[in-house]
């Protein structure tokens, strides 16, 4: 097993911080080494210094893309933090259905990983509107920094065990069994999610119109306080008045400093 020296770890951590905002603390060193080990072996790098040099000089950007794909953890599952979706259905969607006269909902899943969150949202929306669904443009924008997870997400294929926690009605209506192992989302739901690669650290956000709802759950846990503060302010500016921000249950915004109104744990509103 290759080892990573202090200097190598600091270099790599500084690079990742500067480019992606992700704050890798010392205790992550073993994890990072483990995740990158295979990349080094495969590409015949003798040590992490050589690998780092390659990342810096590689003009194709492929090296950096692989690095970030390996570093970003992608723990997610359907209906993660279920109460958020219940709140959406009970409060947020009824409010928006009444408020948004143009019938175009703009929902953003920022840090969507392998697609469970945006697809769950698409299913919640479909179920909420029922027959009225056709009258609404309610596509979910789903972004992630990792092209690898986006490719996975687009396929909409999940293990049967992964969707077992979903309501039976959803499994029946929204999934088609491929075999005993896997199922695929029906096109009706799959087409309701638009995937784009996007780095939340980019200085300019290319969105023409403001959002009604932003989900950014368990993403900012990797950011330091300053980066998180700046991003939360950007989210505030990017939301319509009356719009909602959902973050992870282990995260919180400082109520004395944040412009957001606290609604319930991990749910905030721009008022």
């Amino acid at each position: 097993m290759l080892t990573m020296t202090n200097q190598e770890f600091s270099q790599l951590a500084a690079y990742i911080k500067a480019n992606y905002g992700i704050n890798l603390k010392e205790e992550k060193r073993a994890l990072v080494t483990g995740r990158l080990h295979h990349v080094l072996i495969q590409n015949n790098f003798r040590n992490f210094s050589e690998y780092y040099e390659h990342i810096l000089t590689d003009k194709t950007g492929n090296g950096a893309a692989t690095l970030i794909n390996k570093i970003t953890t992608n723990h997610t599952f359907f209906m993660r933090e279920t109460d958020h979706f219940e709140y959406c259905k009970a409060q947020v969607l009824p409010y928006l259905a009444n408020q948004v006269k143009a019938k175009d909902l703009r929902i953003w899943s920022a840090g969507c990983s392998s697609g469970e969150e945006p697809y769950t949202l698409a299913m919640v929306i479909d179920e909420f509107f029922g027959k009225e669904r056709l009258l609404w443009d309610a596509k979910v924008l789903a972004t992630d920094i990792s092209s690898r997870v986006l490719e996975e997400a687009k396929k909409g294929v999940y293990k049967n065990a992964e969707i077992a926690t979903l309501p039976a009605q959803w499994r029946l209506n929204y999934f088609r069994k491929i075999d005993n192992e896997k199922s695929v989302l029906v096109d009706r739901i799959r087409n309701e999610v638009i995937y784009r690669k996007f780095n939340l650290m980019d200085s300019s956000f290319p969105f023409k119109r403001k959002f009604h709802v932003i989900f950014c759950r368990n993403v900012m846990i990797y950011f330091d306080a300053q980066t998180k503060w700046e991003l939360v302010n950007k989210f505030f500016d990017l939301l319509e008045y009356g719009g909602y921000l959902f973050i992870g249950h282990s995260e919180s915004l400082n109520r004395e400093e944040s412009k957001f109104k606290y609604i319930m744990p991990a749910v905030y509103r721009k008022e």
Binding site: R255, E256, E257, S258, K259, F260, K261
Partner: peptide, 10 residues
Amino acid sequence: LLIVDDAAFM
């Protein structure tokens, strides 16, 4: 005027 609001920002 007395302001009653839980959000410091407001």
